[in-house]
Design a protein around this nucleic acid. Sequence first.
DNA 1: TCCCCACATGTAATCGTTTTCATGGGACGT
DNA 2: ACGTCCCATGAAAACGATTACATGTGGGGA
Lengths: 347, 347
Amino acid sequence: MVSIKDVAGASGLSVATVSRALNGHPSVSDGARERVLAAVESLGYRPNVVARSLRTDRTGTIGLVISDVLNPYFTELARSVEEEARALGYSVIIGNADERSDLEDHHVRGLLERRIDGLLVSPADGRSPMTLEAAAGPTPVVFVDRWIPGADAPVVRADGRRAIRDLVDHLHALGRRRIAVITGPAATTTGRERIDAFREALSAHGIPLPEDYIGRGDFQAESGRLATERFLDLPEPPDTVFATDNLMALGALDAIAARGLRVPDDIGLAAFDDIPWFTHTDPPITTIAQPTAELGRVAVRALAALIAGEPVASTVLPAHLVVRRSCGEAATPPQTDRAATGGAARE
Amino acid sequence: MVSIKDVAGASGLSVATVSRALNGHPSVSDGARERVLAAVESLGYRPNVVARSLRTDRTGTIGLVISDVLNPYFTELARSVEEEARALGYSVIIGNADERSDLEDHHVRGLLERRIDGLLVSPADGRSPMTLEAAAGPTPVVFVDRWIPGADAPVVRADGRRAIRDLVDHLHALGRRRIAVITGPAATTTGRERIDAFREALSAHGIPLPEDYIGRGDFQAESGRLATERFLDLPEPPDTVFATDNLMALGALDAIAARGLRVPDDIGLAAFDDIPWFTHTDPPITTIAQPTAELGRVAVRALAALIAGEPVASTVLPAHLVVRRSCGEAATPPQTDRAATGGAARE
DNA sequence: TCCCCACATGTAATCGTTTTCATGGGACGT
DNA sequence: ACGTCCCATGAAAACGATTACATGTGGGGA
């Protein structure tokens, strides 16, 4: 590999001058700069980022550890993170934890050893020691979507409580009374928030939530299918199922279709996270949409600020209900669809 | 940050011995090893991969540049690549080219500067100079899914020709005769292969393919929608649309739904790439499935072999037709989960 | 007893940059 | 004409690891 020394040799200058020329240092003569560029061109020199990072202690890279790459919600998040990071001059290394805390550990450790400038993580659960260590350590960390209570790092997330209340109002208005829910892992903040908000909203309407109507899922499709089957086997099955993420909703749809039941006539279905496919399922699915891309952008900006040494506060963006047809005929066609990220609350 | 020197100091040994102890070098006494590990533990030492890479000229990282992270096909590919790479001791840095060759260029350049050990790329089109340069350069490169003819790198891909023939046979058997196609960019190998094979299969049945029945897409949803609208505006619209990837099929579905038409009665739809959602659309979509995960695994193994200096040949795996209901009655009607949209008018 | 070798360890060079410090030579003000 | 300052440049020291080479020590074979 051709190094800066070769460029120095070819241009008859010292490595110091070459380095300065390449980094836009002001005190380099035009002549020198030209000779350097010519040598770079003819030798095909490409700076060694590894060496540079060692010297400068900056890698120009941020890490992103997400819970599941196959989940469209997280791919959208990853995409917006990469986009914003690129705009800010950073590269992104993505680690997929697959909802496993050992994998999360593995990736966080690897990223820290790689000396990334900052870390964005959506913790699978609170059980990854490395994640806690990272949050406590010198590398800037920002939690996105999920977080670990007590860990010392800003959080960028969406608040679904209000939207869940809206959803339950909607279901109530449609006459739904036997509403079951498929939760995420109790160890995740989003898992807890969604079931808590749901329970609260139900009780506001005086609707009970029997233990049988709570399916314990893991945010992946198969768990949604299993939970739904169990619901359908009940002596008094629910008239509506609320899956607290998009993959579990997919699993629920599977289970429902396998029994030859129809949505929404035989059973209603609502989901969390809006994804393009929900428009095309049979029927289109009523769901709660997060401002996913915005979440990613805000998180990256927060991380960049942290890296720059600026103080950073947590951010909460609102999620909102998107009514389609999977719970019955829409009462009113409000169609608040998308772009509604109006007021961002700051903590 | 605590470095190997601190560990050496704390354990009363030299950096050389510490390094050896940490890397499992045989000639290190048990006593020394223990003292090193104790010091590592108490100091919270974490090796600096950047420094190691500089010295060893190995980063333990491979790059993966894909065309579109939002495309489920590529996320599945990315996932299997990461999995296999991890098993082989590599980390993966993913770059999203978003079907833009300038972004592809950007990522390939960044990855090379980062001195990745090897590069997996699915070129957006042949127009990225960096990709060509990379294939010609010293860093091992393997093309996956798509490739650049003439570039000197092994290719791991699926062959869709046979499956496309099967699809056309299927359509023909169902009486479909006015079949339109939405192609990918002519600059991509997959784009060309699919339209070529399709054209060939049609002519084997004596079915014409008028120019009007060819929609030029870019593998993204919006282009599928536009192409389909144009088809539907034709004086004699097609009775079937074949979208050559899953996102364009989604767009086609959009356009069809927007006109209140029903699939497959009013118009048939077939796709390329199988994804979980195709089971849940209305109706489930007949498509051509690639062995996506296997593709990722094979590609990583090929790259690892290349890195190890072993000779590597290109690999072609077969794709196959998956018949569902979007083109008309399935050959084998196993279950009665139809019923659904009985006579209900839509929209 | 002596020699040789293997073993455990240390010293120092090295990887490719950036950056501090030193230096020489104009340009400019007086 | 002289001192001052700045500007362009170079030499060399880092950064944190790995590793070739050197060194001392102890054990085993002759």
